[in-house]
Design a protein around this nucleic acid. Structure first.
Length: 369
DNA sequence: CAAGTTTACGGTGACTTAGG
DNA sequence: CCTAAGTCACCGTAAACTTG
């Protein structure tokens, strides 16, 4: 038996004894109380550990608070003592007194709106005047344009923590976890797009002062979560775009075409304004015969083999559309990946017999030549 | 195509905060 | 204290979008 096991067993039997034997329990409690009273260091340690646990352990804190509330309601002596100590503290502790006073003023102000009719009407009046003047201001088209330009000055840079869409700052708000039901918040949001400075950041972090340092939430997701529902557009609804795996990412355009099952043809035009491009007319997908690539393409044991490939629009044309190097090794890796991950590729067979070994030359031969 | 659903957004009352 | 400005939740609605 190891020391650890022995210790664990000792603790276990000790615990069992404590709970099963009433006499031992009362003795233990009594000696604990006595030690607490007599031993100053022990007392300090206990108090310190208690405070720390209170601060760190949410459950412990909640149960203690619950216990306190319960005791306050049930135990008259405790209640009286607490009230008395409150009075004392108010007398002696300046800071506490000020804090209480402020809270009281605050409460008065808060209740005033509900209780004082005249005050309420006044506030409403003020609000409506304020909003009317704003409306008046917005009748000036130049003012509206100025405001609009101001709002879109920065461009859509804010990422919603839930649907991960890009928004203008006006369309989002700071995402506060406390506003929502805890049970869904963690699963439907991510702080992937919130930049937190680490040691890697230079003294002037590039993100400093930009919207990337905050976590945002768009109003649509915000409202859905307030109702305790999962926002439809949340990335967690299997809407997350995964990173393109390296096997596919490293393919150049001609390599991509060689292993594509369908090659789409479309007419892309520059739209009149804004520098965007648009698809004009229908998109035609032409099925491509993969067998030619998997069986005919020369392959070699040498992983760094490069092939020059010309892509023609038609075989008997002289000219070509694309002329690039193709890395058969990368093609094979990509096909193996797709065979494994993509159901449309599961029947693809790679011809392993078509291997062209490069004849090995020994050094003497090379020298002689 | 009509009916239903969702989204964006302005309007409103009820607070809260900043600053004198 | 007070005022002005800001914030928040909620509601209604036009427009966009989906469904049958």
């Amino acid at each position: 038996m190891t020391d650890g096991e022995f210790r664990a067993r000792k603790i276990d039997t000790g615990k069992r004894k404590y709970w099963e034997n009433e006499e031992i329990r009362s003795k233990k409690i009594y000696s604990g109380i006595k030690k607490y009273e007599e031993n100053e260091i022990y007392r300090d340690n206990m108090i310190h550990a208690g405070i720390q646990k209170y601060q760190e352990d949410e459950n412990y804190r909640d149960t203690l608070i619950d216990y306190g509330i319960h005791k306050y309601q049930e135990d008259e002596d405790y209640r009286k003592a607490l009230i008395q100590s409150g009075i004392e503290k108010y007398k002696d502790d300046n800071e506490y007194r000020e804090k209480l006073k402020q809270a009281s003023i605050h409460k008065y102000e808060a209740d005033k709106y509900a209780n004082d009719d005249a005050h309420r009407i006044k506030i409403k009046q003020q609000t409506s005047v304020r909003r009317e003047s704003l409306q008046e201001e917005n009748k000036q088209i130049s003012e509206v344009i100025r405001k609009f330009k101001d709002e879109v000055k920065k461009g859509p840079e804010c990422v919603c923590a839930c649907c991960l869409r890009l928004f203008f700052e006006k369309q989002v708000q700071i995402c506060k976890k406390d506003s929502y039901d805890n049970s869904i918040f963690d699963s439907v949001t991510t702080n992937k797009y919130e930049h937190k400075c680490t040691d890697d950041c230079k003294t002037n972090c590039a993100f400093e002062g930009t919207c990337r340092t905050s976590l945002w939430i768009c109003y649509t997701c915000h409202r859905k979560m307030l109702k305790g529902k999962i926002p439809a557009d949340s990335f967690s609804n299997s809407l997350l775009l995964e990173d393109v795996p390296v096997e596919l990412k490293r393919l150049n355009s001609i390599e991509q075409q060689l292993i594509a099952q369908n090659i789409p043809f479309m007419k892309i035009m520059a739209l009149p304004k804004g520098g965007q491009k648009g698809v004009h007319g229908p998109v035609v997908c032409v099925p491509s015969d993969l067998k030619k690539v998997t069986s005919i393409l020369p392959r070699s044991e040498d992983e760094s083999l490069l092939l020059k490939v010309k892509l023609k629009r038609k075989l008997n044309y002289k000219g070509y559309d694309k002329y690039q190097f193709v890395r058969p090794n990368h093609l094979e890796q990509a096909l193996l990946y797709l065979k494994d991950q993509n159901i449309w590729y599961k029947d693809v067979t790679i011809n392993n017999e078509w291997i062209n070994p490069i004849p090995e030359l020994d050094d003497n031969q090379v020298v002689n030549e």
